[in-house]
Amino acid sequence: MIESDDFVQALQDIGFNFFTGVPDSLLGGIYATLLERRLFTPSVREDEAVAMAAGAYMAGKVPAVLMQNSGLGTSLNTLISLNLIYRQPCLLIVSWRGFEGKDAPEHLVMGQTMTQLLDTVRIPHRALSEQTAADDFRWVAQTFMNARIPLALLIKQGVVKGIQP
């Protein structure tokens, strides 16, 4: 399992310096580390978080947004009618609830269709794993700089250490 400290450090090393979003239990460790390092700006909705990140980007920051995958639904319009057409990059750190159908009922449809949804709106995505972490972070850095659109790093259960491991 990846330590949340290492996860946040890897993103800081790439240059990420504006973090916002809405919590999910799978992202609890990352969230706690960001709070501890005083890097986190709270938000009340994922579309707000994505828009705040866009403002921060235009003001010179390198932004990332934490969200449960249900928040992709909430922020979809902002992602496609703000970030994608205005060319504003943003790293989406998305928990993959409902992966392989093993989760509470409200997560099953998004868990099953999330990657198709991202493909449909042409948001590049990749699932983080401990074995490929170095490569995954390189992909994040390169895609962010080159594509200038949002990209999603998907976090499955048990990949980054939570609050209760």
Partner: peptide, 22 residues
């Protein structure tokens, strides 16, 4: 001027991101 043509409802959130960063 940052003119929005979509993403109704998030003008203040964009402004907040700019304000916090500048």
């Amino acid at each position: 001027h940052f003119y929005m043509i979509g993403s109704m409802g998030v003008a203040a959130a964009i402004g907040l991101g700019v304000a916090l960063s500048k």
